[in-house]
Design a protein around this nucleic acid. Sequence first.
RNA 1: GGCGGCGUACCCAAGUGGCUAAGGGAGAGGUCUGCAAAACCUCGAUGCAGCGGUUCGAAUCCGCUCGCCGCCUCCA
Length: 478
Amino acid sequence: MKPFYIFNTLSRNVEQFRPGHPPTVTYYSCGPTVYLPQHLGNMRAYVFVDTLKRALRFNGFQVHHVMNITDVGHMTSDADGGEDKIEKTARAEHKTPQEVADFYIAQFKRDCARLNIELPQPPMLCRATDHIGDMIDLIKRILDRGLAYVTPSGVYFDVEKWRGPSQLGRLSRQSLAEQDAGQRLEHSPDKKSPHDFALWVLNQPNHLMQWDSPWGRGYPGWHIECSAMSMKYLGPTLDIHSGGLDHIPVHHENEIAQSEAATGRPFVRYFVHNAFLVGMEGVKISKSAGKFPVLDDLTDEGLNPLAFRLLCFGAKYRSELAFSLEAVRAAQRNLDYLLEFVRNLGGEAVDTVDDSGWVSAYAERFHEAINNDLNTPQALACTLEMVAESYRRRDFRVWNTLRRFDTLLGLNLEQFLQQTREAIFPAEILRLRDEREQARRARDFDRADQLRRELEARGYQIRDSKTGSVLMPKRVAP
RNA sequence: GGCGGCGUACCCAAGUGGCUAAGGGAGAGGUCUGCAAAACCUCGAUGCAGCGGUUCGAAUCCGCUCGCCGCCUCCA
């Protein structure tokens, strides 16, 4: 078994991955906040989560994955620090917060499905509002240990008491004193230290979403949901916790603090953070200025959602990826190339033959790339090169390896192969095909070309070869 | 003010001390083809923002300069 290496933000190093209880891996990833559509930058993060999960399985691990859905905004303590975003949307759209959340959750799930991102099943895909009780219990435990205190404006985590100030900042490598230098917000006078953060917020009567608690009516603080839900389903110590780079300095720092304060045990073994999708400003597909593109913008352009998935593989998860329509189109070309190859396999008895010997070198390379901190660009290059060599050799005995690659890439190649084999064309289309064949045989090429254009207008493509004409749906998915 | 990151061909991007700097897109030429498509072949950075340094050897390490960005406040 090959060792799997991953960059751990805790050590700022690529480390060999060793879960606490192999082959089980407990994995918690930060999920969506559902008051707006998830834009493509968000979706890149979920493609990354999915890829990490697949990579772990590729290596024989059994992944227990939990993802949260934040359906309550996390406001901190500032009196006028802002409105809960879900509530804001709810007011704007004249809906209840629940309705807003449900709407965007459905959209999120749909987009994930289109990108072939496998989400956990409930309860492992968990909503914050379903776990208020768990959060309250966790806060109680922190209070019992004397590491939090109750004030009129809320329950705060006591950073000073928790093993001293130097502990906070471990992830961001920024001491509290350094953070102070640029403080821009006013702090609640109830806080003992400006770094203390809210576990439970009280006396904010304007908020629509409120729950009873031992300390009074209010709502949970910003970070507590992740601690409560992750530990509820996965235990006090997680093997992996992932999220966006932006979460390092505050959210994850505080999560560590409050979780370890409650349990006295290490919270996370491997923190993994993904970089952003950037360069969206110049992209014309934005429906309005300042609005980030969403998956629908790509499908509107006739692009396959899986092309976006493939685009994500073009850069390492820890590198920013410059987004543009041109880049997605390039990815679409790669996707077409692979699908075309699979289509060509359709006629062969690919499932029943062993792969050729030369293929194993690619399998080796692929696995190594993946295990090297998820080097998807190299894994992708390896895949494309293998296909090219297959064409060159006219030796198509590579399907078992390719399909194995696809358990990682998630491009649905197997499903595509089945569809290709089972493709059923409407009688009308077959009639046009036959008519065109007759025209070709009669060397009436004007008529043949006209019929081809007609087929294309109906979404079908025809390709001539020595062995005959092949009919197929146009490749770009709607 | 602090912390962190980035700058590799027209575009996306891997590579972080040592074979000819992956791969893809776009482009050029060619093979095949009634046409088209697909596929295949060939070409493409003597150079990795700039300057200096360390080293037998650097895109890769160090320093400075220029440019860009993220975070410290909701944010993947």
